[in-house]
Computed example of a mutant assay.
Amino acid sequence: MARPNRVLKLESYDPNPLLDRLISVVPGQNDIGLAAALGVTKSIISKIRNKHADISAEMLLNMHEMSGLSIRELRNLMGDTRRLF
């Protein structure tokens, strides 16, 4: 049974600034290029952008490795300012 993701319910949660920041560092500079760089489909990026899916821990690590941004900075960009998760 999957645990409900509390980040999607945060009032401050908005993945778009995070995705937009990441797009600035990938070739192609669009959702398709970002999806390719992260090894996911454009559909996954669209679901995240529209808050129909969350950003998994694995994807967050991939974003960190791709961009060089810290996990804390990535979480701040998406509005997840919780100390513990």
Results as ranks from 00 to 15, higher is better:
K47H: 11
L69A: 07
G39S: 01
S70V: 13
P27I: 11
D54H: 14
M59A: 01
L34A: 03
G33K: 13
D80S: 06
D80N: 14
D31A: 13
S56G: 04
N30P: 04
R75Q: 03
L77T: 13
H52D: 09
N16M: 09
R3G: 13
K42F: 05
E65T: 11
P15R: 04
I45H: 00
S12F: 00
E58R: 02
Q29T: 15
H64I: 05
A57K: 08
D20L: 11
I45G: 02
K9W: 03
R21I: 06
R21E: 13
L10P: 10
L61E: 12
R82L: 02
R82N: 05
S43C: 07
I45S: 00
R3P: 09
N30D: 13
M1A: 11
D20I: 05
L61W: 12
I32C: 04
A2M: 13
E73Y: 09
L84D: 15
M1P: 11
S56Q: 03
I48S: 07
G28W: 10
A35L: 04
G28F: 06
N5D: 15
K51C: 01
L77F: 02
G33A: 08
L19D: 10
E73R: 14
L84E: 13
R75I: 00
P4D: 14
S24W: 05
K42Q: 15
I55V: 15
V7R: 12
N5H: 10
L10R: 02
K9T: 15
A37D: 09
S70F: 04
T41V: 02
P27Q: 15
M63Q: 00
I32R: 09
G39N: 11
P17I: 01
G68S: 07
V7Q: 11
T41I: 05
L69S: 08
V26D: 06
I32V: 04
E11C: 05
L22E: 01
K42M: 02
E58V: 07
T81G: 07
D80V: 09
L18D: 05
F85S: 14
L8S: 06
I44F: 13
N16V: 12
S43P: 07
D31P: 03
H64E: 05
A36P: 06
G33H: 02
V40K: 03
K47D: 15
G39T: 04
N50W: 15
M59F: 01
L10Y: 03
E73H: 07
D14V: 09
T81D: 15
N62Q: 09
T41L: 01
G39V: 00
A35V: 03
S70P: 12
H64C: 14
L34K: 04
A57L: 09
M63V: 00
G28T: 08
Y13K: 03
M78H: 00
F85W: 14
L74Y: 05
G33L: 03
A53V: 00
L84H: 15
S24Q: 09
R49Y: 02
E65R: 08
D31M: 05
S46N: 14
L69H: 10
